[in-house]
Design a protein around this nucleic acid. Structure first.
Length: 259
DNA sequence: CCCTATGTTCCCAA
DNA sequence: CTTGGGAACATAGG
């Protein structure tokens, strides 16, 4: 479910709400998730995003790493109330942090803090056309697969990759090594503006995404291609097309994004 | 019953 | 080594 703007929204809320709190207890309902000893009693220092991953930093240079995958969500509740698909819960001073996840794909890990930036670029941290071009090098894979490769760029998933390529007017099939510097410039600009706007919206609630407090995002109002198969392109009027790439629904305008 | 789903990983083939 | 396809993970909703 969540891509960079959704995870960013969640991390900012978490950082505000749970930083400084101490862990009273940990409850694990889903036995697929690890039974993490040693959290109890620790104080939370900060919460930050690493790509699509959430890192909760605790005192003592340790951290909890959470990947929400497709349907994972966090819910914050002052009181003990029933939470649908609750898999795991952190009881803190002042409230409870529930991990809710119907499909049970989300992952948890505990370990040493990661420290500096990882090897992947972050789209919000000065990812320029030049850096994109260098990262692409001679790679011949489709630009859409390149943008969603988490080892290269952390945070872009299926929805935003489709939207970025539409804004930049580039075919999702175009090989990464074939983009010239002007095209990379378009990607840089599209990426920055779309992701920033989506963060301002609190994410895209295409189906069921909601933030820490159960509030839906509003970027679905601004989607130009994702989920708009057959509807007219807002630039040229041609019907938006849906194809499958690497098993993922890929939406684009065959006229504006011919190459 | 059929298909689809905002993610990742693994296996296999070209 | 790179690229691409498909299945798997587990569940809900149309």
């Amino acid at each position: 479910m969540p891509e960079l703007p959704e995870v960013e929204t969640l991390c900012r809320q978490l950082d505000r709400v749970i930083s400084g709190a101490r862990v009273r207890s940990v409850v694990r309902w889903d036995r697929k998730l690890p039974d993490i000893r040693g959290l109890r009693g620790l104080r939370i220092d900060a919460v930050q995003r690493r790509g699509k991953r959430i890192e909760i930093d605790f005192e003592g240079d340790v951290a909890l790493f959470i990947h929400l995958r497709m349907t994972g969500r966090f819910e914050w509740h002052r009181d003990d109330e029933p939470v649908r698909y609750a898999r795991w819960m952190l009881e803190l001073d002042g409230g409870r942090l529930y991990l809710s996840d119907p499909r049970r794909f989300a992952t948890l890990a505990f370990g040493k803090r990661s420290g500096g930036p990882g090897n992947a670029h972050d789209p919000l941290q000065g990812l320029t056309a030049a850096k994109l071009s260098r990262a692409a090098g001679a790679r011949r894979l489709p630009i859409k697969a390149f943008l969603t490769d988490q080892n290269v760029i952390g945070g872009i998933g299926n929805i935003y990759a489709c939207e970025i390529l539409y804004r930049a007017a580039i075919s999702p099939w175009r090989r990464a090594c074939d983009l010239d510097s002007r095209k990379w410039g378009n990607v840089e600009k599209a990426m920055a503006s779309i992701l920033q706007k989506a963060i301002d919206c609190g994410g895209t609630s295409f189906s069921d995404w909601a933030d820490l407090f159960g509030k839906r995002g509003c970027y679905q109002r601004f989607l130009k291609v994702y989920g708009r198969e057959g509807k007219p392109c807002q630039r040229c009027g041609a019907p938006i097309v849906r194809v499958l790439m690497a098993g993922r629904a890929t939406f684009f305008c065959p006229s504006c994004q011919a190459t």
